[in-house]
């Protein structure tokens, strides 16, 4: 097992961390600043809207709590997928991966519904500073979830090939998991800072 791993590209590295794993970690540091800037914009424009609707007029906390819960559960299924990949349970891995993807899609469905609901209540990009900063922030988070769904979807398709994801499959899953958990954590921050704190 050791020998095959060495033969398949898990090269020796100076730090002992795989290159791709390190790349993802540093990339996520960059992403922190990306979302940090978007959240800062939202907070700076809090109270600067000249017309309604304001957050209190449109937010539906129980609904968003539900979609937040869906995303949280997807993190749990992602953990299962990584575990299964490492311990060579291909069936369990595919099942958990599929659930993660579906939960991600459900979250996106909630978001589309929420955006349309807010739109019907008169909030859009041009309405006021709340609309602009809210839609751009949560929209970009949604894009990240969407990219994650594509990412995990590609992994799922890849794992269905004859030799699956290959000998580094566990590592690949772990890196994908890192991304997915990060996107979830960002949502927890958004939900707390934007929905819950009045």
């Amino acid at each position: 097992m050791e020998a095959t791993e060495a033969a398949h590209g898990e090269h020796h590295t100076s730090l002992g961390v795989d290159n791709r794993m390190l790349l993802m970690w540093i990339f996520l540091a960059s992403e922190c600043l990306f979302f940090g800037s978007l959240i800062s914009t939202y907070l700076i424009y809090k109270g600067e809207s000249l017309v309604r609707p304001l957050p209190d007029d449109v937010f539906d906390i129980p609904l968003t709590s539900l979609s937040t819960f869906v995303l949280l559960v997807s993190s749990f299924t992602m953990v299962l997928a990584v575990y299964a990949a490492h311990h060579n349970f291909p069936k369990m891995m595919k099942l958990s991966l599929l659930s993660t993807i579906l939960l991600g899609l459900v979250f996106l469905g909630f978001q589309v519904y929420e955006f349309r609901l807010f739109g019907s209540e008169g909030l859009n990009l041009s309405t006021n500073q709340f609309g602009a900063s809210f839609f751009v922030l949560t929209g970009f988070h949604g894009v990240h979830v969407g990219v994650g769904v594509l990412y995990l979807g590609s992994m799922l398709i890849g794992s269905m090939r004859r030799n699956g994801l290959g000998p580094s499959g566990g590592l690949y899953m772990e890196i994908a998991g890192l991304y997915w958990h990060f996107v979830d954590i960002v949502w927890i921050v958004i939900f707390t800072v934007i929905y819950l704190i009045p």
Binding site: S37, T41, N124, L125, Q129, A132
Partner: peptide, 23 residues
Amino acid sequence: LSLPVITVALVQLVFDRNFTTNF
């Protein structure tokens, strides 16, 4: 660490100019 910040600013500029926001 600094490119993501200008990225956000540029996105806001693109939205202001093309997608009706008023950042």
